[in-house]
Design a protein around this nucleic acid. Sequence first.
DNA 1: ATTAGTTTGCAACTCAGTTGCATAAACTTT
DNA 2: AAAGTTTATGCAACTGAGTTGCAAACTAAT
Lengths: 119, 119
Amino acid sequence: MRELVLDILTEQKMAISLSDLEQKFHKSDRVTLYRTLKTFEEKKLIHSIDDGTGAVKYALCKESCQCHPEELHVHFLCLKCQHTFCLNDIPIPFIKLPVNFSIENINMVVKGVCSNCKD
Amino acid sequence: MRELVLDILTEQKMAISLSDLEQKFHKSDRVTLYRTLKTFEEKKLIHSIDDGTGAVKYALCKESCQCHPEELHVHFLCLKCQHTFCLNDIPIPFIKLPVNFSIENINMVVKGVCSNCKD
DNA sequence: ATTAGTTTGCAACTCAGTTGCATAAACTTT
DNA sequence: AAAGTTTATGCAACTGAGTTGCAAACTAAT
């Protein structure tokens, strides 16, 4: 099961949600897929993206990724096709926080229209 | 009802969720509050923040705010107290998107520990 | 083969968000 | 002021994502 899920994740060009994943199988159990994604995430194979659509999406990490704030990238949600892209080449810019605020993680989601959906 | 909600929102130093709001009333209807927040948001009195905690939070907009991408600010979620701050002084940095990607909105949430909760 | 550990599947629950419908309140028009 | 219209509120109920517990199936190790 997990191998199948990994295969599917590898094929994906964009991040996919649990329900997306579910629909790639004829017969599957939501919970199994759910737990699979959780373990993959724990093992830092994939990272999760909360793009505000209500369903968390998942995408493969670059190799040796530790998911530290410095190595996080920007995500893009297309408001037309609802696809979520990992903009791997666009790092999240440095933010100067107020004094005594420490940083552990950043989530940055840009919403707009992707190149496929424009005009 | 709406006036009461507006009062509460004005007192708040941080963004609050629907359930937070609900608990400020002895007797209240979730749906009424929900719809109140929705209308406030439509009228650009408040803005919503999806900080990834599972519940959308709301905070007053600065006057004359049109909620355009340029005037958006960074939000901060404290992982200890779970409070969500509007970092009104910290604008969201400009992001150069891939060609043919257009931008409509940005959500940027920094997670960490706030000054009250540190050490 | 027996045991222990892991993975899967089912049922069921929580919680946020949402909708439809009926009543109540406020505002309009005559 | 009465009748009619619009707007706001409250109740019930549903959806969908995420989650947990438990038992059955599978795997590996002695």
